[in-house]
Write a protein that binds this DNA or RNA. Structure first.
Lengths: 113, 113
DNA sequence: CAAATACGTTACTAAATAGTAACGTATTGG
DNA sequence: CCAATACGTTACTATTTAGTAACGTATTTG
């Protein structure tokens, strides 16, 4: 039973899919136009990536005649940030600011044992 | 040729691996103790996850006698945030603030067709 | 209505990933 | 030194994922 968060993580794990999202940051785009941006991949290849992104809720598609217009939904990325990434902010701040301290502490710890 | 960023994304895509990182937020931990936290997995299973995390630079291991002490390095997560996630902040802010507007627009669009 | 366009699906293959079981190595306490 | 402990690896299987080729559907345009 994969959670919806899990689908988002899996979707983001692939370079092509992150590139698709990056393209959509500039605005909505039809499926065919997206396919054209990836000459190395078949149409179906790209479409399967789009599917994964849609299932993760990162892309919405609306129909307009024979066009399918894909647009970005950044909210799931926000959730990833809020529920997970932000928990590490304190930690990485410590690693950056307190690097010298950490080294000193580590050294004296090893002498005490 | 997977970039180092790519290794981080792949590493984060797995629930077990994110759980390992969450455990390490409380402080460093030996390999065996980490294994014990995942009764459903074999030792090797957990160790392979640790390996993936180490290759992504998310975990450092130092040797201390017969113990291997694994500790968190949150810097790669920070990079993911800076180089990618943060680009979407403007976008998700727009989606949140403009949500009511978007709904109204969508409704009137549907009435027009 | 027929051709062109935009999109989608079915069926298949190749490769990467997750996982287990069983065996091997290094460190340390009695 | 030898038994226990902590860690690691080899060899294998099952599952998932990525990808292609080829075929099918719906919507316009002349």
């Amino acid at each position: 039973m994969p959670s919806s968060q899990d689908l988002v993580w899996k979707a983001l794990a692939d370079t092509t899919r992150r590139e698709i999202l990056d393209l959509l940051r500039d605005g909505p785009c039809t499926t065919t136009r997206l396919v054209e941006q990836f000459p190395g991949l078949s149409r179906f290849g790209v479409m399967k990536h789009i599917d994964v992104l849609r299932q993760a809720g990162l892309i919405n598609t609306r129909h307009e005649g024979r066009l399918r217009i894909n647009s970005l939904n950044a909210i799931p990325i926000r959730r990833i940030y809020e529920r997970w990434v932000s928990n590490y902010e304190e930690h990485w701040a410590k690693s950056l600011i307190g690097l010298k301290d950490a080294i000193e502490k580590d050294r004296s710890n090893r002498q005490n044992t």
